[in-house]
Amino acid sequence: MSGVIDVSARIPDRLTFWQRLYLPEIFRGMAVTLRHLVLNVVNPRRMPTIQYPEQKRNYSARFRGKHILKTREDGTLKCVACYMCAQACPAECITIVAGEHPKIAYEKYPVVFDIDMMRCVFCGYCVDACPKDAIWMTRNYEMAFFTREEAVFSIDRLRESKAEIDAHGYGYRPYYPGDGTTPPTDASRLPVVAGSGERDALRQAGVALPNRHVGAGPLNATSQAAKFTA
């Protein structure tokens, strides 16, 4: 804790004669700006300008850009369509329609997984909410659309691709290298459950399997849209 200071008392209320002449102050000001110019010319690295697109700003590993859906080793999506990201999204921009995956270990899979980039506010809540390590963000910010329809990204454009990661790199994600988190076990490596592991084959053999909830989620964008029409 400390006191209160009067800032106006520190600075003389009236200007001196020289300052009121105005020209000396102009030259003093010019000297300040000119110093910057000369220093920049002598040492171009001092210049703050980033020559985008040739040169890119070095964003951190936490940058929140375009989303990607992570894949298992066999190329299927890690997502099990649990609707948690759709629920956590403040913009309600994620639409998921779930389907039952033939392989038991994979539980469900998203038949539709759409992110409306024209609604998304890039807050990263979907990444925080995902319990399956299925959705990450990248450092890809180079997006511009000519129509609103092409801004709805479906699975094809969200699926992780090596080319995209090589070009931009991972951004915001649930864990970072070196923070001690063990990623969840890849379901494609899990031992095959009870027989073939194929759901239909097991059902035919009379094994009682739980029915998964498939279809649109409880709170996805389409049902929200109905609630919020103007």
């Binding site: 804790m1 400390s2 006191g3 209160v4 200071i5 009067d6 800032v7 106006s8």
Partner: peptide
């Protein structure tokens, strides 16, 4: 912390 509240009477 040790800090001051700047004020002015103008």
């Amino acid at each position: 912390f040790d800090w001051d509240v700047p004020i002015s009477n103008e």
